[in-house]
Design a protein around this nucleic acid. Structure first.
Lengths: 351, 351
DNA sequence: CATTAGCACTCAAAGTGAATGAGTGCTAAC
DNA sequence: GTTAGCACTCATTCACTTTGAGTGCTAATG
């Protein structure tokens, strides 16, 4: 059976209507609402075909049809025309983003909030991380007689500090010199795997400061590990409860519970990190998470610098408004990337 | 009418039963379950009195009684005997807390998770902040030819860093000297209000480095402001959906929405910061938040050092199990305070 | 031969009304 | 002061009917 033009039009109409109403769509509705010049009976026949082909499903004998995952997939892959953001929307997005962003963390949080407000779905953002970090600079400073702080700065100016107690603390000036020397030796090294020889040489060169060298290495190791533990911003969880498909409280509960588990989010957001920049759409079971079989997830990676990136996911029911979300998401990512780029090229900036 | 011993016992029984079942409690239930040696009719009379006094309410004519906010208040203030944590519970709490805490942030998050799991209610924790911060140390280091980082360390070793571009950057050694000198001058100053004279003197003494002095002051100002923007950890939001009082999806939605608004949380957690250490209980409308009129909130402040504190709130339906929550909360706060104290006195620790 | 009108059939949802039972308040007796 | 007994209230449940949206099939039509 061929998926001819008429069938496609009808499928599109079904999906469109179902996205708007969340109710099974019947042949008569389509005959009336969309001006195909066909009677409901004809449409009925076509719908029967579409069901046989697997694009739509009948929840029970006397109900209309709803799109299947496969139907949505076809819709997303080829039928959906991407909606352009209207000027007004563009402007609103941009001005909100720019209003108050002197901290990356705050920017991400605000972005999540805007996205969930703009789409009425749930937004999950992973904070930017840099991977395969190179050491840019190490600095050791003293806080008081017995405490030092090791500052590890990686490519892209991501800063982490580690405070430790020490038995013996050299004088401030001396500490500075050591710190500079250590920094120079470690510069450019990959955090995850520092050259064995360099480590050996460190202990040799600073034999009087075994304790400090040890703490520096420990600090680097911890910095490397820390970014494995992603930070997430979740916004608009309440929106889930708006959709009739989650009026069953039990279902909603399981989903919200799932959203609280970081590991799952991590899996969701880091599924295809290679395809940076491209929109990814997971429909129903494609998410690979059982509790989300009635949901779809649209993700896009953002990139603040060569090594620094994260991703944004928007989660809604499978009948979510794909084209709207895709365009809002594209617009938003462009916005925040622009904002960050602008900040970086200006004189002052914070991290 | 006097609130005699028998009335109190009956009220206690009603509250107890209602906490467990969430169903209106009838006279016969009490006569059967609790061995007061009274018939249901007598209890009926007493209940009628209790209702007249305002401690219980009849939701509709042929239903049992449920406690009013006033009834809970009496219960909490005088009738509730605090449950001691059984050894087993203590042990479990402690071992989980100790298992993996090399970061304060992670500790707070884990604490929230444990508390919501242990109580089956929702937990909100505000991250520790220090207020009226004194400057302990300032350090300026260079990242590359055009970028410096100002590190501001406050009492209690809370570290913030601010990265900025500069036009002119002195040599590393020179920068270090300036940095040390500036640090010495600012040490002990209150971040929120640095002595005018000191500022003047700074600009004078380092007249060649106007740009750097300016950035240092800016960094301090921003550090002072940052802590006003509290960070929260929310856990167990799904638990809200478990309670029959929120099986109305609309209600649940409004509540979850409320929980996503930081300002409201902030108001809730910082209501009575003076009474550090003491448990606070807000019942129903006492929370002052309309959406939470069916909820109660139990809060307790924790304190990691003289100036560093935050608070924990546990939120449940008004019929929540007050005595359990109070004891779990007390135990947990003691635990994390102990853990942090131990870490601080040990050799290694991170922030 | 594609299209359509017509009809029988299915089934969820909404409505109806009686039965049930948990609960109360009141009164009279103990 | 306590209790047994009874009339009364009212939410809940269940069986039953009605309604209407929707389908599939068949025969007629252009």
């Amino acid at each position: 059976m061929a998926l001819n033009d008429r069938k496609i039009k009808i499928l599109q109409a079904i999906i469109h209507d179902y996205i708007a109403t969340a109710e099974p769509v019947g042949s008569r509705t389509i005959a009336k609402k969309y001006d195909f010049g066909l009677s409901s009976a004809t449409i009925r026949n076509e719908m029967s075909d579409l069901e046989e082909m697997g694009f739509i499903i009948q929840p029970h004998a006397s109900a209309g049809r709803i799109p299947s995952d496969m139907g949505y997939r076809l819709y997303v892959d080829s039928l959906m025309q991407q909606r352009e953001l209207v000027d007004n929307e563009k402007f609103v997005l941009q001005s909100i983003v720019e209003a108050n962003v002197n901290q990356i963390e705050y920017l991400m949080e605000e972005t999540a909030r805007i996205l969930s407000a703009a789409t009425n779905y749930t937004t999950i953002i992973s904070e930017p991380v840099s991977k395969n970090k190179n050491i840019k600079k190490i600095q050791v400073i003293s806080l008081d007689e017995k405490t030092i702080m090791v500052i590890v700065i990686s490519d892209g100016n991501i800063v982490k500090n580690h405070i430790s107690r020490v038995e013996y603390l050299p004088e401030e000036k001396e500490l500075f010199d050591i710190s500079c020397a250590i920094s120079e030796m470690l510069e450019g090294e990959l955090m995850e795997s520092i050259n064995e020889k360099v480590i050996e040489k460190l202990y040799e060169d600073f034999s009087g400061y075994h304790e400090i060298v040890e703490l520096v290495l420990k600090a680097i190791e911890k910095t490397a590990k820390e970014s494995e533990n992603l930070q997430f911003h979740l916004s608009g969880a309440k929106n889930i409860l708006t959709f009739p498909e989650f009026s069953d409280v039990q279902k909603a509960k399981t989903l919200i519970q799932t959203l609280e588990e970081k590991e799952i989010l991590q899996g969701l957001l880091s599924a295809r990190p290679e395809q940076a920049g491209d929109i990814q759409i997971y429909i129903g079971n494609e998410t690979g998470i059982d509790e989300m079989k009635d949901c779809s997830v649209i993700t896009k990676n953002y990139k603040f610098a060569d090594n620094i990136q994260g991703s944004i996911a928007i989660l809604g029911p499978t009948r979510m408004n794909y084209s709207q979300v895709v365009s809002v998401l594209n617009g938003m990512v462009k916005n925040i990337e622009d904002v960050v780029a602008r900040i970086n090229s200006e004189k002052n900036n914070d991290s």
